[in-house]
Simulated scan of single mutants.
Amino acid sequence: MSLFTGTADYYRQFRPGIPEEVATILDQATVAASPRRLLDVGAGTGLVAEALLHHFDDIIAIDNDPGMLAVAEKALRPQLPEGSSLSLVESTAEEFKPPAGWQADLVTICRAFHWLDQATVLELLDDQVADDGAVAIFGDNSFWVANSPWKQSVRNVIKDFLGEERRAGSGTFNHHNRPYSEIMEESPFNQVEEVRVPVHREWTTESILGYLYSTTFAAPHLFGDRLEAFETEVLAALAQHNSKDHFTEENEFLIRIGRRQPR
């Protein structure tokens, strides 16, 4: 069973997408080329590929969850510009092999690096990225570690139902203590630039529950026959913070762009 089993539809509908400013930074991270090639690792339902669909004309998006890829196919294929290529590949990052001679101008890994064998993947990408290409590892702050009062209350409800440890499907989440930039600096892509992009979001109880059901720590199947009780408790917790069903969030995307040393 995939860590994200049963979450794909929630992920597509309720996960915040990639802000335009972040897409612009990614677009500018690598030189123009023809064809211009993007490798999106841990593609999920295609949020990154969608944001960059008009900036790259040859895109390979990989994920090991077939349900996620099916949702991505349905969402992205109708939007694909004429003359562009999109391949959705069921594979882990560690096992992926691009077509012969194919090298990416940009690799994107969004909200997924913590699931990977990080050093191994970065070493493998050395053969999969063009000489002047870049690797971008980025994401926003997880709901689980956010410190706003309403999020803390919801997190406490999750803990009441599923235990104190953050879940990751049937197991628990393996926390990573080393900064990603430090890991990148030990890889072939050791020239690392960091960019932060602040984001403001508006939430409702519906979108909050939908977001939670898109995660590995609160996927619907984890609650079994207590799912309805969980929803009731979340609604009660949120009502203590805002009676008008309106919740705000200040977050940010931290983008780490790694390049090789000039040769």
Rank of each mutant, 00 (worst) to 15 (best):
N177P: 02
V154A: 05
A219M: 01
T248P: 13
G139V: 04
R166S: 06
I183V: 13
E233M: 03
N242T: 05
G163P: 06
H241A: 12
S142V: 05
N141H: 14
K244E: 09
K151R: 15
V199T: 14
T215D: 05
L238H: 13
A134K: 09
I208C: 02
A236H: 07
E231A: 10
Q118F: 14
A136R: 07
P149A: 15
I109M: 14
N156K: 15
T232D: 14
K159V: 05
E165A: 14
E233P: 03
L122I: 14
N177S: 12
L116Y: 10
E123F: 06
S148D: 15
V197T: 02
T205A: 14
G224S: 04
G171R: 05
S148G: 15
A119C: 14
G163Y: 09
G224T: 01
F138C: 07
V234L: 00
E165F: 06
A218S: 09
R166E: 04
V129Y: 14
F138K: 00
S214Q: 12
T248K: 13
Q118C: 03
E185Q: 13
E185W: 00
T204D: 09
E249A: 04
V195D: 00
A239E: 03
G133V: 09
I183A: 01
L106M: 04
V199L: 05
E186M: 04
E231N: 08
I137T: 03
L124M: 11
L235W: 10
A236T: 09
D132A: 15
K159T: 07
Q191A: 01
A104C: 14
A237T: 07
F189P: 00
H200G: 14
V234I: 12
D245F: 02
V135E: 11
V234S: 08
R155K: 08
V192F: 01
E123L: 14
Y211H: 12
A136W: 07
A112R: 07
D140Q: 11
R111G: 03
I158L: 15
Y211S: 01
L238I: 08
Y180C: 01
N177F: 08
D131N: 15
R178I: 11
Q152W: 14
H221V: 05
F138S: 00
E228C: 11
A218M: 10
K244W: 08
S153A: 15
I158W: 06
N242W: 06
H200I: 03
F247N: 10
D160I: 03
K244L: 06
A219I: 03
D117G: 11
A134D: 10
N242A: 07
I137S: 02
D132L: 15
T204M: 07
V195E: 05
F217L: 04
T120F: 15
P188Q: 12
K244T: 09
K244S: 02
W115L: 01
A136K: 02
L116C: 06
A104K: 11
D225R: 04
H221Q: 05
L122V: 11
L235A: 09
S187V: 01
T205M: 02
M184F: 10
F189S: 02
L106F: 10
S181D: 06
K151N: 09
A130I: 13
E186H: 03
F161G: 06
A146C: 14
P220S: 04
N141P: 09
W144D: 10
V154G: 07
W150C: 09
N242Q: 12
A104M: 13
L124W: 13
V157W: 07
A237M: 01
E164W: 09
T172C: 12
H176W: 06
G169S: 13
